[in-house]
Amino acid sequence: MPPRERRLVVILGAFGTGKTEFAINLALKLSMQGRRTALADLDLVNPYFRSREKENLLKDKGIALIAPKGALRDADLPSIPSSLKQLLFDMDMTGVLDIGGDRTGARVLGQFAGEIAAQNPAVWYVYNHSRFDNRTAEAAITSLRQIESQSGLSVNGLVNNTHLLRETTLDTVKNGAKGAKALSDFIKLPLICHCVSREIAGSNPGVSPMFVMDLHMNRPWEEA
């Protein structure tokens, strides 16, 4: 987990890698450790499956949600909530920044890159080996570099979140860990953790360090 001196955690990655699921779980964990925590939903490209949908859960746990409000909540307009600025100045607040997918999603960060970079942030790239375009380390790196250049920030850690949604098996996780390790070696970036659902974690996938997640981002036919 990010040490206290790293109060900003920027979460980047391709569509569907599970950035939002990871961001929510990370915010919940940081909050449980007693840190004042805010989750910034800066996904301006995806119209669905955004962390703002979990507003009530976050509120219950005392996590501040920074996201477009009112009519803008359901839109995909390039509107950045003013409270993001507040987070950038509130040095006692731990901020998890959930950024939209792909290079188009990462572009939103560009205008804040200087202010964020000055605060020694954790910039983590979420990797899902099951994504169709992550089959080789070379292809994964192209995607990572594109996202990095659009965001204006340098990635300093990899988060392996390999899954096939509800079809994830022990093998999915083990294969993913191998893919993530290969990518980490190839671009010489530390592997921060392997994300594993609570269910799979129970059958001991043998990956370390393991970040155990509860799944919150269900599709409409999946009940929690």
């Binding site: 569509f15 569907g16 899902n128 099951s130 994504r131 169709f132 089959r135 899954h163 096939l164 949604l165 079809e167």
Partner: peptide
């Protein structure tokens, strides 16, 4: 091996 795709991208690729 199963691959994870976003609906719109998968439809375009198909």
């Amino acid at each position: 091996q199963k691959e994870l795709w976003k609906g719109n991208e998968a439809i375009a690729e198909a």
